[in-house]
Design a protein around this nucleic acid. Structure first.
Lengths: 162, 162
DNA sequence: CTATTTGCAAATAATTTGCAGTGCG
DNA sequence: CGCACTGCAAATTATTTGCAAATAG
């Protein structure tokens, strides 16, 4: 992660936070910096331990709350289909996934064109390549109907949505 | 899911199980069928509830144990980087992921060629498309060195590996 | 100032494990 | 028949929440 890149993201954070009326506390800054600077994509516990070194008083729940707040602001994304719950796939044939960011629906789709993707050289230097597939994210048609007015980012939050 | 496809997978299950000396109980058959037949990629709880309708005595922990056993046999895969733990990504620029199936390491890589993938029409009928990226799975170089003899599939199991 | 945010501790939700009985091969 | 497998209940681990004190803007 290069310095100008970090600066650019921090500025984006500042702007977005101000627009949303969200306060930029010391803890939040450090948590965000930690995710941006980490080459890995850390989980909450890992971020917690790292931030704790510089802000000894942070608590794990603040890390969680901050992460989902940043997620709501569209400043971070999560890996995998969505929050918690491991999901299983018995389809061994080459296939790709469509994932709804709202409800977590996952659908397979096939494409012989995508099956034979050429990957950049850099990848093979990371390790062996067992398999490659495409993940598409969007709002599924069912969720589009249910939330005709909402923006795709003001969702999936801790606050219970009755 | 077409009938011949299901048959083919059930046969593969039988063969693999026999080879591995794993018993094919009623419960396991039903759990496997459930994953194969579901268009969704269900989580343990969902599979549990579905199987329960036909085998009222199954327990949730049997579902968990079976799922990981099938996973070990290479008959099912999981969505997302690996077991549990949500992981966060603050990289908003287009990028792709390399994921180590052994240790869960995730590395970004860039490729303008992959950024502009053309997706099949079928995808846009599932819902809106917000973003598409490639996920590559393999054994990272660090894990290759640590497990020079093991096969990539005899791992990541419930049994604690001291 | 004042609404937001934090830390704590306690609550929930998800997943795993020890054990004794059961049943497949 | 024996060893792998199951169900149960209890243990762990991950994540969320209520509340009073602290703090950004």
């Amino acid at each position: 992660m290069s310095q100008p890149n970090l600066d650019r993201r921090l500025e984006h954070l500042t702007t977005t936070a101000k627009e949303a009326g969200v306060k930029l506390t010391h803890q939040r800054l450090e948590i965000f910096r930690e995710i941006v600077l980490s080459a890995e994509h850390p989980d909450a516990e890992t971020i917690f331990r790292a931030v704790q070194k510089r802000v000894p008083t942070v608590s794990l729940d603040t890390v969680y709350r901050t992460l989902w707040k940043l997620h709501d602001l569209g400043l971070v994304t999560t890996l995998g289909p969505q929050r918690d719950r491991v999901r299983f796939d018995a389809n061994l044939d080459p296939h790709h996934h469509y994932i709804c960011v709202q409800c977590g629906l996952v659908r397979d789709f096939e494409s012989s064109e995508l099956d034979g993707l050429r990957l950049p050289e850099a990848v093979s230097q990371l390790g062996t390549i067992m398999n490659a597939h495409v993940e598409v994210r969007g709002l599924c048609s069912r969720c589009q109907q249910r939330l005709p007015t909402q923006t795709p980012n003001s969702n999936q939050q801790s606050q219970s949505v009755p």
